[in-house]
Amino acid sequence: MRATFRAAMLESWANRRSFWTQLAAMFVNDIAWVAFWVLFFEEVGEVRGWARADALMLLAVITTAAGFVLGVTGNVRRVASVIADGELDAALALPTPTLVHLLARRIEPVNIGDLVFGCLLFALAGDPTPARIAVFAFGVVTAVFVYGGFLLALGSLAFRTGRGEVGELGFHAVTMLASYPVDIFSGPTKFVLYTVVPSAFVSSVPVRLLDSFDPQWAALGAGAALLSATIGVVSFQTGLRRYTSGAAWTRA
């Protein structure tokens, strides 16, 4: 496991110029989002209890969590295509657990940029006292498990369907919806964001905890993280039993 992770790190670090270019590109991307929220709240003031500072914390949480999931366990977004293209064959022959190997095998520098940016944004705009740092870390950890588990579960659908479109759409859905405050939605849509597409737990719930820590919401966040991760792992493991070789000898 450690060797796999080390190999993934060395691979992403091999072209250092490209590594830094990608990191910088993601920084520019995230700064544009900061500009959007600043301009938006400059004009609007406050929307359904959300102000500029909350929106910036939302951005800090989602970039840190998504940056970790997509950057450090980069293959989690590719699970469906790895399965559909028969690329799991190489991983099955290894003495390490297939899922662990798959997740540790790829590091995406562009998303590492997100991870670094999210932490920096919190440090600069999040009023980082020791208590707030702890709540931020807790929120990010729960968001990582919710987000990662959801992507893994959707990607594992490819074991049954042989196609990756649902996984791709699910990725866009949870990422896009988590980029906005959950309170701008109402009625059944809001319910969906706490259940079927759990984007509220990826960003809005951690921000609510940062705003005023509530043990009930914290427990709900932790429960969602546990449930999502469990569903992701179980979906992958049960799907793996159905997997038939793609007869392709590649690196997973």
Partner: peptide, 20 residues
């Protein structure tokens, strides 16, 4: 599907803003 998601999210934001 992606287009509808983005559109739903951004229009919800702006409608809420206009309302406020």
């Amino acid at each position: 599907g992606f287009y509808l998601l983005v559109t739903a999210a951004v229009t919800s934001l702006w409608r809420s803003a206009a309302e406020a």
